[in-house]
Computed example of a mutant assay.
Amino acid sequence: MSYSCDPTAERLTEELGFSCRDAHPVVDFHNPFRLENATMPFLELLVIGGAVFALVHAWRRWRRDGDPINISLWFASVVYLAVIEPPLYFPSWFGLEKQVGFIFAHNEFTVQFMYDRLPLYIVAFYPALSQLAYELVRVLGVFARRGPLPGSLAVAFVCQVFYEIFDQLGPQLKWWAWNPDNKTINEPALASVPMNSMFLFASVSFASLTYLVVRLVGAKEGRGTLTGRQITLRTLAAGALTPPAMSLAGVPSNIFRGGNHLAIQQTVLGVELALVWAIGLRILIDTRRAPRTDSTPPGPALFARTYPALYLGVLIALWAVALPSWFSATDGITQQGTPIGSLWYTALCVIAATWLVVAVTRATAPRRTKEPVRS
């Protein structure tokens, strides 16, 4: 099956512990207790459970609070995945061998789709993380006080810090493997993670998706209540338009792609990532410091209070499992032959994520009213 398992894909999947040959074109099931790494079932439970939790929360926001943004964002995330992922797994199918090439391969998890290239937990990861970031920013009042664009820029920052805790760990634990021969896309890198992925996939994609959904289905002066059909069509549009928005954001670094411009491209991406941090932190800090002028409750906040903290706690625990091998690595490679991520950047993301979790906990805590002084 060379059309679904070319030599590069076969080499990477064999390094991960399986072969992409003879994989089922639709879906494969594997024993969760016999996966390549013992951390993998815990990751699946965390992400798939989070996506289900997010869907229930989104439904409540729509049916009980009349806000369709969450439900639209959930499904738009899946539409975005359906548009962006197949060309990454099978570039030859789309005539992208020269422009993109083979970028990475996922390992075998419990449930796999598309010739074992797409794990179910990755399908769930997009709606779980988009809801995590949007809800944190929404509950902190950024969208209500600052509007769609600042809110979406804050989402870019929140996604960056939560995504990269996961992204910097995956290659070491064989959750996936980057193709080291693809210099065009996978370089420059921060430790084992391509900086293009850090900027475009971990921030720009979620910010663009959120902005499109908020503008297309969110409350707007002069816009009546949207019908289910209108929400569906606008959700499809938001998911489909996100990849072109990512392409535009990638232009500054892509200008210097190839040749001897790697250092310049690394500088451009570094500046862009620094801007994600600087702008996101500024918006969130300013919003937190501003006195509350609205009396509208944020709606059900159980998801925002619990899932980000659970996600962060589980990922920290998985990092703790990986740290002994990380510290014994030589030249960025563990004794098991896997590349390590950036510990300093992960620590920075953990600090920022912890601050966000604490901020949301405080923002959603019941307010105490002062009792009248009795004479």
Rank of each mutant, 00 (worst) to 15 (best):
Q160L: 15
A207D: 01
W62A: 12
G141S: 10
L12E: 08
S77I: 05
L132Q: 10
T369G: 11
G332N: 08
T235D: 11
A237S: 12
L200N: 10
R305F: 00
G270R: 02
W178P: 06
V217H: 02
T369R: 14
E10C: 04
I122S: 02
L275P: 00
W62N: 08
A363W: 00
G170S: 14
P308V: 01
L226I: 05
I122Q: 14
L190V: 10
A365L: 09
L209Y: 03
W59E: 10
V47F: 01
I351F: 13
V142D: 11
R229V: 10
P7L: 07
I285A: 06
A317F: 13
G95S: 12
T287F: 03
P180M: 02
S205L: 15
L275I: 09
V373C: 03
Y345F: 09
N260I: 00
N70D: 15
G151Y: 02
T267G: 05
F104H: 13
T330F: 03
V161W: 08
P194A: 05
T293Q: 07
Y126H: 12
L120C: 04
S19H: 05
A352C: 09
F206E: 13
I71D: 12
E108F: 01
A76N: 00
I122L: 14
I255E: 01
C349V: 08
Y121I: 01
G49K: 08
A249R: 06
A58L: 00
R292E: 13
T330V: 13
P339F: 03
A317Q: 10
C5R: 04
P243Y: 09
A240D: 03
Y89A: 11
